[in-house]
């Protein structure tokens, strides 16, 4: 596979293939020709920009702590299986930016992506080019925002209540107060 598509990356930590930008559909069609006929799971993953502290051994042999910034990104993950050969899973990822995420829809290749990509569009706001019917699926049509994103703020609809639910009380103290 990596020979066929030299730009595809292999992500060792996740055990996944990252499809080259704009070529996901070609990769998927090639995979389908290889007998990967069943797309099980489609989902999005939202990565915020974050800083990690790493310990690096410097040139003089001393341990140093280096702060590195990992840029934000949005992944769309496909779990693929082959029903003919009974093998799998093969994890395929499409990587895009967070601000205006746009990936290629794989619905023309595997029909099972249809509803799941709609769900990713609804909850993560990823735009799938080539999707036959891209609408909100779980939330109502007038809804604004994409609730599964990590920085989504929920509507404040808690009121004070005499319970020991600490988190709710915390939320109450942090947010508005409905008396």
């Amino acid at each position: 596979m990596l020979q066929q598509f030299p730009e595809a990356e292999w992500d060792e930590a996740a055990g996944a293939i990252i499809a080259p930008l704009g070529q996901a559909l070609a990769v998927a069609e090639w995979l389908l020709g290889q007998g990967v006929d069943y797309c099980s799971n489609v989902t999005g993953v939202d990565y915020l920009e974050r800083e990690v502290k790493e310990k690096v051994t410097g040139e003089d042999g001393k341990m140093e702590t280096v702060t590195r910034t990992i840029p934000s990104r949005m992944d769309v993950v496909y779990h693929l299986y082959s029903m003919q050969k009974q093998t799998g899973p093969l994890v395929l990822k499409q990587r895009t930016n967070r601000e205006q995420p746009q990936v290629q829809s794989l619905t023309p290749v595997w029909r099972s992506c249809e509803l799941q990509e709609r769900e990713v569009y609804d909850l993560f706001g990823v735009d799938f080019t080539g999707h036959p019917d891209q609408r909100r699926i779980l939330m109502w049509d007038e809804f604004e925002g994409h609730p599964m994103r990590k920085d989504y703020t929920e509507p404040f609809d808690y009121e004070w209540e005499p319970t020991p639910h600490n988190e709710i009380l915390d939320k109450h103290h942090r947010g508005k107060v409905i008396v």
Binding site: F143, E159, V177, I178
Partner: peptide, 24 residues
């Protein structure tokens, strides 16, 4: 439906939020 929530969030004729003794 509104963009984030339901409008109104509750029907005051039927339900009122409990009074908070520690309200700030």
């Amino acid at each position: 439906f509104t963009g984030t929530d339901l409008e109104p969030p509750y029907n005051p004729e039927v339900w009122q939020p409990p009074a908070n003794p520690n309200a700030q």
